[in-house]
Amino acid sequence: MTTSVNNNSGGDQPQGSGNAQLARRRFLQKLGLMGAVAASYTLLEVQAKTAASSDKRWGLFIDTSKCSSGCDACVRGCNEEHGIDAGKDEHTRAQWIRKIDLTDNLTGAESSVPVMCQHCDSAPCVDVCPTGASFKRADGVVLVNKHTCIGCRYCMMACPYKARSFIHENLTDQKPSAPRGKGTVESCTLCVHRIDSDQNQQPACAVSCTDEAHSAIVFGDLNDPDSDISKKLKTVGGSQIRADLSLNTGVRYHGL
């Protein structure tokens, strides 16, 4: 820059370099201003949106001693929330939660548990999906991105919990917060539409269970040692279904 000024202005060196310095100063000032604007924009943006973060890991704690055999409040709550028609053909209807009655062959002890997607840390459905539609969010929620799902049902084969359903027929009257459609696989979403918009919201199954005065389902952040779910797990303990598979499930059962 200095050389070009020298060449152009010949002997008038001091004034030329002064102009150049002034131009450079102005340029730098403008650059700084642009940077400040860009920075404030990014700041605003960060404040405006909250993405799912790996600081949290959402999970469910299910107390089987509080869950009663004849009750299906959680299933009904889930169906209502997501617009699932339970009256459809039992072979093809969607089931996000199934109530399972268990009897211990040795002792005859009976228990009843809701089984839904276990939101595994190392989820087999995510491993096998050929399109990446089956995925795990940063906060541990395992979902199907129905925009990329091709309906191959490989994930249904891979899931040890039989947690996923395929939609065989055209659906109508879907809920605005729960888009569902023919040709895609779906399963429990831990009610992401509720928990994303308000951190104090609970999944529909947990709310229904509490409304029924059972309070067998506790929802919360497994990463937070002060959350209800972590305290429960610490005091009474909880086991995984098929713990031998080492999937590190997000749904834990007490009393199985």
Binding site: K49, T50, A51, A52, F135, R137, A138, D139, V141, L143, N145, H147, P176, S177, V192, H193, D196, S197
Partner: peptide, 21 residues
């Protein structure tokens, strides 16, 4: 916005299909 919402869980953004409807 669809990708942001489904994959990252970002909600309440302006370009949502629900808001269109």
């Amino acid at each position: 916005q669809r990708d942001e919402t489904v994959i990252e869980g970002i909600r309440g953004e302006p370009f949502s299909l629900v808001s269109c409807v």
